[in-house]
């Protein structure tokens, strides 16, 4: 294994760790908003690390650009979705109390 491969492997493992923490957050956190927080942040960091690991392993500029685009879009989708779901959740909570 070359040094580059070891680096890629480390990135994959680290990415997996963040996915695990996202899942733990999803299952263990007490309320909807904190679960939303845990999942959105941890997962997209994990995805970024795994995609980076794949890019390092591939060592190909076009591929790396495509993977970067994928990650950017995932971040965009995650922030937008978190915003919308949180709004809709707060709206529901308000209607329950009111």
């Amino acid at each position: 294994m070359s040094a580059l491969e070891v680096f890629a492997a480390l990135l994959l493992l680290l990415g997996g760790f963040f996915f695990l923490s996202g899942t733990v957050g999803l299952l263990r956190f007490p309320d909807t908003l904190s679960r939303l927080h845990a999942v959105t942040k941890a997962d997209n960091l994990g995805l970024g690390l795994i995609l980076l690991g794949v890019a390092v392993h591939g060592a190909n500029l076009v591929l790396a650009a495509k993977l970067l685009l994928i990650w950017m879009l995932a971040l965009l989708a995650a922030s937008f979705s978190a915003h919308l779901v949180a709004r809709s959740h707060l709206r529901d909570e308000a209607s329950r109390d009111g």
Binding site: G22, T23, L26, T32, R35, L36, V39, T40, D43, A78, S81, V85, S88, H89, D92
Partner: peptide, 9 residues
């Protein structure tokens, strides 16, 4: 919302 968050994950 919880179920949709999970689907997103």
């Amino acid at each position: 919302a919880d179920r949709i968050i999970a689907a997103q994950l």
